[in-house]
Design a protein around this nucleic acid. Structure first.
Lengths: 122, 122
DNA sequence: GCATTCTGCTAACTAGAGCAAGCACAATGG
DNA sequence: CCATTGTGCTTGCTCTAGTTAGCAGAATGC
C-alpha cells in the first residue's frame, strides 16, 4: 500500500503543488483562478482532502493542464486509452508551438533530450 | 436552459435508468453490482442527487459502460472524440511526460515560459 | 521601532453525498 | 385470506467536501 494510483491523494497533492509553483502562483492566486478557497487548496495539496471532479476541473483550468491529467492522477480515469509513444509527445508539442522561434525550439529540444537521455533523432 | 451538459443531472439520471432497464436490472441488483445503496441509486436516477466520479465509475462497471461516457453525461469530461489538436500545448505535454522528473519538469517549464514571455499567471 | 502585505495554515462551521432502516404497493402462491 | 417476495421510494442519520474568519511568521517600507 504505497503508491497505488487509486486513493493516492498525497501523490495528487504533490503534483498539484509542483504545478502551482512551476507557474509561480501563490495558494491564493491559484485558488482565485480556480474559484475555490485557499485553505481548501492547501489541504488538497497536502493530501488532507479528496477533491471532487468539479474542483479538479477548475484547478486544471487555472493551471492550464488538461482535466484528464488530473483525473488520472486522482485515480478516476484510466491512463489514456491511446497514449501515443510518450517520447514523441513533448517533441511534437514543441515543434508545433507557434510562439517559439526556431532557435528556441532547438534549445528546448536539446534540453529535453538531455533530460530523457534520448538520441536526438530518435 | 434546455439540455446543457453541465449540471444536467436529470439527463444523467434518465440515461442511467435507461441503461439499467435495458440490462433488465432492478435498483437493488444494480446497486449491489456497483457497491452502492439502492435508495441512493434511486435518487441519482431521478436527478435528486449528484453522484461523485467514484460512484459513476462503479456504476459504469455495473452497467458495462465506459466511465468516460458517464463522465461526459455528468459534465465533468469534454466529449473528447480522439484527435486532441487545439490544446496540445507544450505545457500539457511536459506535465504529462512520465520520463521526466519533477525537477526537470519545472526547469523545462521555466525555460519555456522565459521564451514565450508568458506571465506565469493569467 | 511598528504597520502593512505577502506567504501558508488552523479552527469552526455549513451543505450535501451517501448510508441503513423501514414504508407502500404489486404480484405471486400457500 | 394472509404470508412472502419483489419492486421503487421516504425518512433520518453520519461523515466529509468545501466554506469563511482568523492566526503565526517572513518580507517589505515608514
Amino acid at each position: 500500500m504505497s503508491r497505488n494510483p487509486l486513493n493516492d491523494l498525497a501523490g495528487l497533492g504533490d503534483y498539484l503543488r509542483e504545478q502551482r509553483l512551476s507557474h509561480r502562483l501563490s495558494l491564493r492566486q491559484l485558488s482565485e483562478l480556480a474559484g475555490i478557497s485557499n485553505p481548501y487548496l492547501s489541504q488538497i495539496e497536502r493530501g488532507l482532502k479528496r477533491p471532487s471532479a468539479e474542483i479538479l476541473q477548475q484547478l486544471a483550468k487555472g493551471l492550464e493542464v488538461s482535466a484528464e491529467t488530473l483525473y488520472v492522477k486522482a485515480g478516476i480515469l484510466e491512463h489514456h486509452p491511446e497514449a501515443e509513444s510518450t517520447t514523441s509527445t513533448v517533441r511534437d508539442a514543441i515543434a508545433a508551438d507557434p510562439n517559439l522561434t526556431d532557435r528556441q525550439r532547438a534549445t528546448l529540444l536539446d534540453i529535453y533530450e538531455s533530460f530523457t537521455g534520448a538520441d536526438p533523432q530518435r
